[in-house]
Design a binder for these strands. Structure first.
Lengths: 210, 210
DNA sequence: CCCAAACTCCCGTTTTCAGGGGATAAACAG
DNA sequence: CTGTTTATCCCCTGAAAACGGGAGTTTGGG
């Protein structure tokens, strides 16, 4: 019985590439592909592969969500994440969402085969480079509370304490306290470095318009 | 006479994918591939293709630099950038470095063929989506002077005016003036939003250690 | 050679922040 | 049920920043 493999990726070239890499494996059968989450789900309603090779970046939905969904509704299907990002957050998110494996897009043919065989029988397969990344001690990210994060966002938006107080319906002194705690937690001593560190630790991102 | 195409990409899967996409084109000949800039240059010393499909992210050297080098030393070879990034800075950098075209990694087979044929005869080919990106008006990036940028960096590092003054060997009032001008130019009214905007406009980046 | 820009410097006032010290109620986990 | 965390609130002081104004000196490009 061959291992049925389905591919989800929005890049034609990746699909073709994976397909080419799969060729020659006697025990692996390529059963189809989808370029977005929706058509993947549609396919799954009719047929279920053994393994899904899945990208993290899909046009309609994140691979994270799709992975979660597949895991909940088709627990027998193993998801093998195929990503170009060797970054802790991505890896952790995919594995947390139920992915059985994570390989990079520079994967070799033999490793891809191994990975597929591994996840197909319920094992976990993570590329060596990915394991490396996971092993690296992550910088101690300070723990800030929900409220502190709100205040931090307001600060970064350029609001003053009185303005923040008004916005959050609390006293000015409360904001001063939160601010004091934030300075301590992020180990800085003024607004400028507070904002810089907030970006560094990704408590806030640059998206917020003006 | 077939168009000789060489591929430079560090992802096996992309190489295989491109190769698969190239198959079936009667006038296109795949002549080889390299997974880094060095081996690409080594190949070029022996043989010259007509077109190089080149990734921007190479392990040893950026595609930008490789592109520049190819352009200077082998002006007859057309470089077609194949990237997953539809971002202004990348596109502009590659084209400025002499790339004859820029397609995304979700390119279809027919478009890839068209693009290769175009650049092979000296034309330029840029994917429709890429053109879109290029057309989007870039946000007016304020013009700040060299000195102002220095001050901005100091501010983001958490230095106070007196500290910056000492560091740059000028008076405190001078720094106050620069700061005043920065607030005006970036259209903000306090340090927090100044730092945020500085990140936004990429006057400063997050690399700088604590 | 001249002008505009860049860089430098100064004054005074008001607002905001940093820092230090507390305190209390609620919620949560052991 | 107790201890910790979280969120709230208060006071005070001195420092720093924001805002308004003005002004002299290099300097690079037309």
């Amino acid at each position: 019985m061959k291992i049925k493999v389905f591919i989800v990726d929005d890049h034609f070239m990746v699909i073709e590439g994976l397909r080419a890499l799969l060729q020659g494996a006697a025990d692996i059968d390529f059963t189809g592909h989808a370029t977005n989450a929706a058509s993947c789900l549609a396919y799954l309603k009719k047929e279920q592969p053994d393994v899904i090779l899945m990208d993290i970046n899909l046009p309609d939905q994140s691979g994270i969500d799709l992975c979660k969904h597949v895991n909940e509704n088709y627990p027998e299907i193993a998801v093998l994440a195929v990503s170009s990002f060797n970054q802790r957050s991505f890896i952790q998110n995919m594995l947390d969402s139920g992915a059985k494996g994570y390989v990079l897009k520079n994967v070799t043919q033999t490793e891809l085969w191994q990975a597929i065989r591994a996840v197909a029988i319920g094992k976990t397969w993570v590329s060596a480079e990915v394991v490396q990344t996971l092993r690296q001690r992550q910088p101690d990210r300070p723990v800030i509370t929900r409220r502190e994060k709100e205040v931090l966002e307001c600060i970064a938006q350029g609001l003053t304490n009185p303005q923040i107080a008004e916005k959050l319906f609390v006293s000015i002194t409360t904001i001063e306290s939160h601010r004091k705690n934030l300075l301590h937690k992020l180990n800085v001593n003024n607004t400028a470095s507070l904002v810089r560190q907030a970006f560094y630790y990704e408590f806030i991102s640059i998206q917020n318009e003006k």
